[in-house]
């Protein structure tokens, strides 16, 4: 009999969704940061403000996602 090596990996019902979410979220936030810095450098306050609004919205969505998942 095979030794007890814990749960069999194939039976785990997990998805790569969270990894995709991580990549998308962090990439988006880095992008927003770059846009905001460009707004500062080029004296374009509206560009920086738009980037900040999107960044805060993205964080709010991340918060919503955390609330949505249960385990």
């Amino acid at each position: 009999m095979a030794p007890n090596t814990g749960p069999v990996r194939a039976q785990n019902n997990r998805s790569g969704g969270i990894l995709v979410y991580l990549l998308v979220l962090v990439s988006l936030q880095i992008f927003m940061m770059v846009v905001a810095v460009e707004g500062v450098m080029s004296h374009n306050a509206s560009l920086a403000t738009a980037a900040a609004v999107f960044s805060v919205l993205t964080t709010a969505m991340a918060f919503g996602f955390r609330w949505f998942i249960t385990d």
Binding site: Y21, V26, M33, A45, S55, A62, I69
Partner: peptide, 30 residues
């Protein structure tokens, strides 16, 4: 997954604060 997203959220919030700071700076400049 919930524990994992806690760190994710903290990272995202840190970026949002940085970006908002940059926007505030740009507005002050203009």
């Amino acid at each position: 997954r919930r524990q994992f997203t806690r760190y994710l959220l903290a990272t995202s919030a840190a970026f949002a604060v940085g970006t908002a700071g940059a926007a505030a700076w740009a507005n002050l400049q203009s």
